[in-house]
Design a protein around this nucleic acid. Structure first.
Length: 405
RNA sequence: GGGUCGGUGGCAGAGUGGUCAAUUGCACCAGACUGUAAAUCUGGCGGGCUCAGCCCUACGGGGGUUCAAAUCCCUCCCGGCCCA
């Protein structure tokens, strides 16, 4: 095991705050002496079946703790998901059914295992304990915080002043998350910076329960593709860990330059020196830096070879304006062809390039549709196109190769 | 429970009997430029069709008045505020 100083060094990298820092130091020292790993908690609510890069910031930190020999404890918030975390939200989350939550949870676990070593991770569903809580216990839990304290939260204050509804059950959320820490005896809890209130609840509840309180480590919120708002599913500004290599690469190439620094810091293992070099315009162009970043991200989820391919394809398509070597396939049923032909609009829709005939028609009018090896521009929305396997269709930056089934 | 205001497209927010598939902003898509960055300009942004036209669905749900409703009436559901 590494020395406390060494551990602290890597743990601190990229964190927002460590509260309280001295306690972390003490815990690490004791752990080293007793050879007893620290229990590091991270909770994730299976509200949708997609893990994105925003989630990976704390998960990567958890992975680091695993590498340092500590015990990762992952909480699947199947009960908290039913409540909905009010943190950073300006409205109540939509209600989810238990079945949906469980289905999401399965998917989550699979995706999370791309980042942490799931075989060495303790996984709990907080429904395991909350489903057995009596009403009395819930009341006792509620007694551990005042309404004033709860309302001090920024998100609640905002909603209150804007006249937006706050449901009482949302107030349960921080208490539940905190109680999770009691249940699993957490030494450390990881979370996004907006989680501080919830994480601190855990400390208080643990103290109440006669436990040593956890250290709260918050990590910066990753901004999404737009470069402004936090990465999130609902904002459609995310990159999923399960997405294909070319998608991850392409989306990364579209982020604003200003995002480069934080993405390198939060999503890659690049050293400070490397990052400084990439961001220095005298040594690396932002364009190249972005390709490196995109390559790093793809490498993490798909391997170095896939990253190489994704980059080569991308350059071929966008820099050289050629057809890339690897083009996603779109299946067209042979039965839909009339004498080997099909009208261009339904063809684009079937190939998944356009959401509707109407939209396809518009895009043709805008000069966004090109087909075939010579990338002929389609101008007539009623054109019947000769379709054969291998035909390449383009609509804007989207590209697809037709296969007839 | 009472009073009152309100529920419009992904969001914000106009519209208060016909000219409304619904002003505008944001977001989003595409075109030009370019580094699929930023900035800028342009077009688009419910759906179907035999597509300069026609048709269908849509302004919380249901019902009604009217030649005609997002707009008026009834009712139900949901929310804010005030009172209890």
């Amino acid at each position: 095991m590494k020395s406390v100083a060494e551990q602290l060094g890597v743990i601190r990298r990229g964190t927002e705050q460590i509260e309280p820092f001295e306690e972390l130091q003490r815990k690490l020292e004791r752990s080293l002496q007793t050879k007893k790993p620290l229990r590091v908690k991270y909770g994730i609510d299976p509200t949708a079946a997609d893990v994105h890069l925003g989630h990976t910031v704390p998960l990567r930190k958890m992975r680091l703790f695993q590498e340092l020999g500590h015990q990762a404890v992952l909480i699947i918030g199947n009960y908290t998901a039913l409540v909905g975390d009010p943190s950073g939200r300006d409205q109540t989350r939509a209600k989810l059914t238990q079945e949906l939550v469980e289905a999401n949870a399965q998917e989550y676990l699979q995706q999370v295992s791309k980042i942490i070593d799931i075989s060495k991770t303790e996984v709990h569903r907080n429904g395991d304990w909350f489903s057995h809580y009596s009403f009395l216990q819930v009341m006792e839990l509620c007694g551990k915080i005042t309404v004033q304290r709860m309302m001090e939260r920024d998100d609640f204050t905002k909603r209150l002043s804007k006249g937006e509804p706050i449901s009482l059950h949302e107030c349960l959320y921080p208490l539940m998350q905190g109680q999770d820490s009691v249940e699993i005896h957490a030494d450390i809890e990881l979370g996004g910076s907006e989680q501080l209130f919830n994480l601190m609840r855990g400390r208080h509840l643990q103290q109440d329960a006669g436990q040593e309180p956890q250290v709260c480590i918050t990590l910066p919120i990753l901004r999404g593709l737009d470069g402004e708002k936090r990465m999130g599913k609902s904002l459609k500004n995310y990159i999923g860990v399960g997405e294909p290599a070319r998608e991850q690469f392409g989306k990364t190439m579209r982020i604003p330059d200003e995002l480069l620094k934080e993405w390198f810091e939060l999503l890659t293992d690049r050293s400070e020196a490397d990052i400084a070099r990439f961001l220095d315009p005298d040594q690396t162009t932002p364009f190249e830096a972005k390709k490196i970043l995109a390559g790093d991200i793809v490498t993490f989820y798909h391997g170095a070879e896939a990253a190489k391919v994704a980059r080569a394809d991308w350059e071929k398509q966008f820099s050289e304006k050629q057809d890339p070597d690897h083009i996603p396939e779109a299946k067209i049923e042979g039965a839909r062809l009339a004498e080997g032909k099909m009208n261009i609009c339904p063809l684009l829709v079937t190939a998944g390039l356009a959401p509707s005939n109407k939209e396809a028609r518009r895009k043709i009018g805008e000069g966004a549709v090109h087909i075939g090896p010579d990338r002929r521009k389609i101008t007539d929305p009623n054109e019947a196109v000769a379709v054969e396997s291998g035909l390449v269709l383009r609509l804007g930056r989207k590209i697809v190769r037709v296969t007839i089934s």
